[in-house]
Each structure stands twice: as structure tokens, then as C-alpha cells.
Amino acid sequence: MSSASEIRLRTAAPTQTRALAAALVALVDDGDLLMLVGDLGAGKTAFTQGLAAALGVTEPVTSPTFTLANRYEGRLVVNHLDAYRIEAIEEAQDLALIELLEDGVTLIEWGDVILPALPEDRLDVRITFGTGDDDREFVLGAVGPRWTARVDALRDALGEWAA
């Protein structure tokens, strides 16, 4: 499905995926939720690393798959969650998502696993493999008013990677 609120991008290396995410830095704010979807190795953690670094997080941003939730202090707080190991929708409450959204930017990997538990106000970032080993294709989709209002600004900020 293609729509006006959808943004298509591509990168050719993990460093570019980090740079793409870093370009969102001026557009994110406390209370924002980003859902990251993509197969193993697609670059969900690399994306989070790029945005966190741009927000001034200096410690290594590591995968939250086993710890489920990591928290970093930068210019904004960065909550890095992972639903990969969530097996039933009832377990989504372990992530304390609603409480986390009160403070900082929250990124959730494998968010599609618990889609019914996610607020209807978020930026969906879907990543797929391209032709070459390091090629990645992105589809950004605004869900709800917070991000729909920012679609044009997003398109401007991410023009360098437009597909």
C-alpha cells in the first residue's frame, strides 16, 4: 500500500542506516514512539544506535532482545525495547510501555509482534533487505496525529536517502 503519509528510503551500509536515523534528531520529542520492523540483521538496532548517538547518548547501545528494555540518558531519554521474545500479548505489559512513554523517545524492535498493545500514535519504520548484502529499503509510515503532522518535515530531513 502506498499513500501520501508514506516515505520510501534506501541505504547501502549500516553507517548510512545510522546516519538516516540521526537525521531524525531534530524531529523527535518526549513521548514519541517509533516501531521498528524488519527481519534479523535488517538494521533495527543500528537505526536505534544512530538516533541515540545523535541525541547525545555516549554509552554503547546494545540489543535489548534478552533484557527486553534498555534505558539511556542523552539530551532526551531513549527507551529501547524489544518484543522479539514476547510470546503472548498479555506479556506486553512486562515492557511497561505506557509508563515509558511519559518520558523520552521510545523505540520498539519487533513491535509488530504486539501491535494490538501499541498506541495508535507512532512512526512505523519497516526495513527490508535490498539486492546487495548491505542494501536496505525503508518505508516510514505515520500512524496517528503526532507523526502525520510531521510527514513533510520528515521528508525534508531524510531527502538524502529518498528511494
Partner: peptide, 30 residues
Amino acid sequence: VSGGHTMLILMEDHLRYRVLGATVDDAAGE
């Protein structure tokens, strides 16, 4: 080395450690 952590630690004495290194992305178990 676990699902959530990967650290190289020097334990000098009881309760005294130096974290020499850690994973910068995925843990080994992950």
C-alpha cells in the same frame, strides 16, 4: 556471556572488578 550480556572482566579481589570490555551491539547468547 549470556543472552543479555557479554563482558570481559578482571576480578582483582573479592568485590573488586574492572570491566575490560563489553559488547557494542548484540550479546553472544543473543
